[in-house]
Design a protein around this nucleic acid. Structure first.
Lengths: 229, 229
DNA sequence: CCAAAAGTGTTTCACTTACACCCATGA
DNA sequence: TCATGGGTGTAAGTGAAACACTTTTGG
């Protein structure tokens, strides 16, 4: 500790596991690396932390720079610090977990990324660095967290049908849920607000659209409630 | 990214929130800083990460150096990276969460620590850096985690009575539990092995000693079970 | 009128909670 | 023999899971 500031320091990076939901399928956003090492390989978006920005800020900046995404749900996941995880030299990476409402935002590759694209979370290619491990942990976190915190709504458009919500949960949890029980429970939580509108352009009975009510949810949290789907 | 290795780098530290349980009370291990900054103030044990060691290894090393503790339960907690959290300059700290079986190990201050001592977790002094915040997060993690992972046993001696176990849970969760229900549930989980022995030297009926059965637990985990106390 | 998904209640079972007394031991 | 904590069972209530048919709409 006394001479700490003379010590050599590891490089410090952030990497983001960005997840979205589309067509009943959980997706992950990957970029194709435009530079060495691992040039041409797919990887999580990320980059180095600057001296004048917090870790969260670095994650948001890199995400915007490499993929064009802003205003996403972002939370710290885990810090990866094995000695040889980066061939360039000692690099510690703070991994982030991000959720985006797909369809709204277009992704666009930029800076060091040759391309950016969505992959089905179930079948991602072999990634650069230890990014497969990071991604695995992110998916695990999503599965665990979605059971007691309503983050699922971060993955849906502002208005959605109960069937969409159910399919989202099914694909995150990896198992089928009973329709009646699911709807009963979702509505009983009292955080969904029914709108007057219904989905459009389907060739069958149109489902009612619901909206997640942040205020009701905040009140419930205060009361020390117990969310669980 | 391209010029990353020319960028200035933050310092990288680890800090450990070490918790123990003694006399029915949850404790935290603090060191009194022997050097600036915050000389004389209490803080979490920790120090800088070396280039040739992983983050976990750094946490273990610092813990051993500053407090003499080895073989503790250790898991990464969260990484703190606000720009001005260390007056010496930009420093990012990977915080760890540690549990020790008290009574077995003596703590002894060393290196940069003037003293090391156990404090009741409920009433800790104002700490150096953002360590109060780290500690708070560690206690929160313990409260949440203890509900679905049997880490409570990391805080008890190898053999313990059911009443000790109950008091541990009560002090972590911050509320009283019903004796009969607690015992029923604890035994129903089928991870406790009754020994033939009883506690000694008490002036009332001596309670039976139990042991946590790691193997049974591992088997249950494999079967995808559901621990909860 | 057919296909396709929306929408809706009841019963059963398991688990949680509340609750009070006798037992064993050492002083 | 008294004080102290150890140890035990049952009943009521609450929440989870299983399960099938009618309704609406567009083609």
């Amino acid at each position: 500790m006394p001479f700490s500031y003379e010590y050599p320091r590891p490089s410090l990076a952030v990497d983001c596991a960005v997840m979205g939901f589309d067509e009943g399928d959980l997706k992950v956003l990957l970029i194709q690396r435009g530079i060495e090492p691992f040039k041409g390989k797919w990887a999580l978006p990320g980059g180095f932390v600057r001296m004048d920005e917090s870790l969260d800020a670095a994650a948001r900046r890199e995400l915007a720079e490499e993929t064009g995404l802003t205003n996403v749900f972002l939370e710290q996941l885990y810090t990866f610090g094995e000695v040889r995880r980066d061939p360039r030299g000692r690099t510690v990476s703070v991994a982030y977990f991000a959720l985006v409402k797909l369809g709204k935002q277009k992704v666009a590759a930029a800076t060091d990324a040759a391309r950016a694209d969505w992959f089905s979370a179930a079948k991602t290619p072999a990634l650069a660095f230890d990014h497969n491990q990071i991604l695995e942990m992110a998916l695990l976190r999503l599965r665990n967290k979605v059971r007691y915190v309503p983050i699922g709504f971060e993955l849906l458009p502002e208005r959605f049908t109960l069937t969409q919500l159910q399919h989202l949960y099914e694909s995150i949890l990896g198992r089928d849920l009973d329709k009646r029980n699911f709807r009963k429970k979702a509505l009983a939580l009292d955080v969904l607000e029914a709108t007057k509108d219904h989905e459009q352009g389907v060739s069958h009975r149109a489902a009612r659209l619901y909206r997640f009510d942040e205020e009701k949810y905040a009140k419930l949290v205060k009361k020390g409630f117990n969310f669980e789907l």
